[in-house]
C-alpha cells in the first residue's frame, strides 16, 4: 500500500515544490511543538525547523529512502537544537537536554469523580516523572509513534524505551486500582 507520506516523498524526489510545501504544512507545527519541549527559545526552534526542511530539500534525490518521515524530521530537529545549544560547551551529547511536559488530567479526574487527595497523588506521580519518561510519553501517546521509532528519536535502545514506559504505566495502573 502506498502511504500518503511515501507518495509525497516520491514527488519531492522528482523535485515537486508543491509536494514539498505539503509536507511542510503537515509537519511544521508538529516539529515546532516538539521543539518547545526541548527549549524555550522559539527563535532557535523556528530556525532549526526551517533548516531541517531546507536540508531535506537539498537531499531530495534520496527522499524516497526515508521510511518514516515524521520520525526522521523529529530526530533531525532534535539533533539540530541540541547541537546549537551545546556548541558553547564544545561537546555534542545527544542526551544533554531536559524534556519539559505538562499534563492536563483535570477532565479525566472530574469524569471519574476522583477525590481530591487521590487527584493530588496522580499529579505527584506525573510531576515525579523524569525528563526521559516524559519524552517517551509524549512520543508514544501524543505523537503515537511505535517503540522502534521512539528509540531512534531518543537515541536509546528499544529495551530502554520499554523500561521507561513500563515504570510509568505500572505507577498509573497502581494509582487507578487504588483510586476506585
Amino acid at each position: 500500500m502506498i502511504s500518503s507520506d511515501a507518495y509525497i516523498l516520491g514527488k519531492i524526489k522528482e523535485g515537486d515544490g508543491n509536494a514539498f510545501s505539503l509536507l511542510m504544512e503537515k509537519y511544521y507545527s508538529v516539529l515546532f511543538k516538539y521543539g518547545l519541549h526541548i527549549t524555550k527559545d522559539t527563535d532557535l526552534i523556528d530556525d532549526c525547523v526551517q533548516d531541517v526542511f531546507i536540508s531535506l530539500w537539498q537531499i531530495r534525490h534520496k527522499a524516497d529512502s526515508i521510511q518514516f518521515i515524521r520520525q526522521y524530521l523529529l530526530t533531525a530537529l532534535k539533533r539540530r537544537i541540541i547541537r546549537v545549544e551545546t556548541q558553547r560547551k564544545k561537546t555534542l551529547d545527544l542526551h544533554d537536554y531536559e524534556f519539559d511536559l505538562q499534563f492536563s488530567i483535570e477532565d479525566i479526574l472530574a469524569e471519574r469523580q476522583v477525590a481530591e487527595d487521590n487527584a493530588s497523588r496522580l499529579r505527584h506521580i506525573l510531576d515525579q516523572l523524569t525528563s526521559r519518561q516524559k519524552e517517551v510519553i509524549y512520543l508514544v501517546y501524543y505523537l503515537q509513534l511505535d517503540h522502534a521509532q521512539v528509540a531512534e528519536i531518543m537515541h536509546i535502545s528499544r529495551q530502554s524505551v520499554y523500561n521507561l514506559l513500563s515504570e510509568t504505566i505500572r505507577k498509573m495502573k497502581d494509582f487507578w486500582e487504588n483510586a476506585r
Partner: peptide, 11 residues
C-alpha cells in the same frame, strides 16, 4: 483508563 490519563497539554 491508563492510556486516557496520559493526556498532554499542548500549545
Amino acid at each position: 483508563l491508563i492510556v486516557a490519563s496520559m493526556h498532554i497539554e499542548e500549545v
